[in-house]
């Protein structure tokens, strides 16, 4: 019988929440099918890791960090930084496009009183 700890339940809870949120966004048309599949995959992996942590050790065995969980966390952190940078670049680009649009409208619709 599995010896389940609170942290494992917490991990699984996050995974279920992630899956439900992704499904809700997909149904609302805010998420593509391919994105839904990616998030479903991440959720499934999270559930698997939560209940069978040994999988992390196996998956990260080639890394020299010793315990698999350490490698998982370090890589996760690096991934989060990469994601943050990507979001920053996208936000900057979106802001620039919004400003350009607002400017175009403002100049085209300018009011002139003589």
């Amino acid at each position: 019988m599995l010896d389940i700890k609170a942290i494992q339940f917490f991990g699984a809870l996050i995974a279920v929440w992630l899956l439900l949120a992704a499904h809700r966004f997909y149904r609302a048309g805010k998420l593509k099918k391919s994105d839904l599949l990616i998030w479903a995959g991440i959720s499934a992996a999270l559930i698997l890791i939560s209940f069978f942590p040994v999988f992390i050790s196996l998956a990260f065995a080639p890394f020299i960090l010793g315990r698999g969980l350490d490698a998982f966390l370090v890589l996760g952190l690096l991934g989060a930084y990469a994601l943050l940078f990507k979001i920053y670049v996208k936000t900057e680009e979106s802001n620039r496009q919004i400003t350009e649009l607002i400017r175009k409208l403002a100049i085209e619709d300018r009011v002139r009183k003589r």
């Binding site: 100049i107 300018r110 009011v111 002139r112």
Partner: peptide, 10 residues
């Protein structure tokens, strides 16, 4: 004056 109006604050 000529008035250009930004629809949202930029």
């Amino acid at each position: 004056a000529i008035v250009c109006r930004h629809l949202i604050n930029r």
